[in-house]
């Protein structure tokens, strides 16, 4: 199987790292080598969070060269656009249409133009899947299951080198037992969203 470079992006507190780990665990279970890299420390402080995951055989370093990522899985619209430079031509973007407006916008120090971000993605990424992921997470039972919704959608698109069932099982064995049910629902809703559209 081909190697796969994946970028998981979003804002601290959205569950980005957990999503990255679940994919990594599933890849190891499938017999692949895995390298990931992220800069930690800002997760609780509203900063941007990016996790790079490289899966496959004969891997080099943990950092993906610009324009080489196969997939960008993003939890937040501005962070989707911020990380587009890593995506290879023809690469897949799966993004929540969530907008998290930083404090700097409230203070008038920067701007957040949601429509412009959406338009830019539609215009420049032919293979871009938008998900109303926050709504699906709430439907599943908790906003914090956003990562499971996105994992479900990504699995259903069948572009990861791990099968959907394996990803679901890894997810459910990674989350706390009392959260399995709600995350299983979220994963299903993410899958269904892809399969019915």
């Amino acid at each position: 199987m081909r190697n796969c470079d994946l970028v998981v992006a979003g804002v601290g507190g959205q569950g980005i790292i957990l999503a990255s780990r679940v994919i990594s665990y599933a890849a190891i279970a499938a017999g692949m080598e895995v390298r990931t890299s992220e800069v930690l420390g800002m997760a609780q402080r509203e900063g941007p969070v990016t996790s790079q995951v490289r899966m496959g055989y004969g891997l080099f370093g943990a950092l993906i060269p610009s324009g080489h990522a196969d997939i960008l899985l993003s939890f937040e619209l501005a962070e989707t656009v911020r990380n587009l430079y890593l995506l290879k031509p023809g690469g897949l973007v799966v993004t929540a249409n969530t907008a998290i407006v930083p404090t700097t916008v409230a203070l008038g120090l920067s701007t957040y133009d949601r429509e412009a971000l959406l338009a830019h993605l539609r215009q420049t990424v032919p293979d871009c899947v938008f998900l109303d992921a926050d709504r699906l997470a709430r439907e599943a039972g908790h906003v914090r299951t956003l990562n499971s919704v996105l994992l479900g959608a990504l699995a259903a698109l069948q572009r990861l080198p791990v099968p959907t069932d394996a990803l679901r099982e890894t997810l459910l064995s990674t989350v706390k037992p009392n959260l399995r049910e709600v995350n299983a629902r979220a994963f299903e809703l993410g899958c269904r969203e892809i399969n019915t559209h």
């Binding site: 804002v11 601290g12 509203e46 900063g47 031509p89 930083p102 920067s110 701007t111 957040y112 971000l117």
Partner: peptide, 19 residues
């Protein structure tokens, strides 16, 4: 280099902040 892609819109400045 591939033809320059459409200019990305201005991105919000997102520094880490106190919780």
């Amino acid at each position: 280099e591939a033809a320059a892609a459409a200019t990305a819109p201005a991105l919000p400045f997102r520094p880490p902040v106190m919780c």
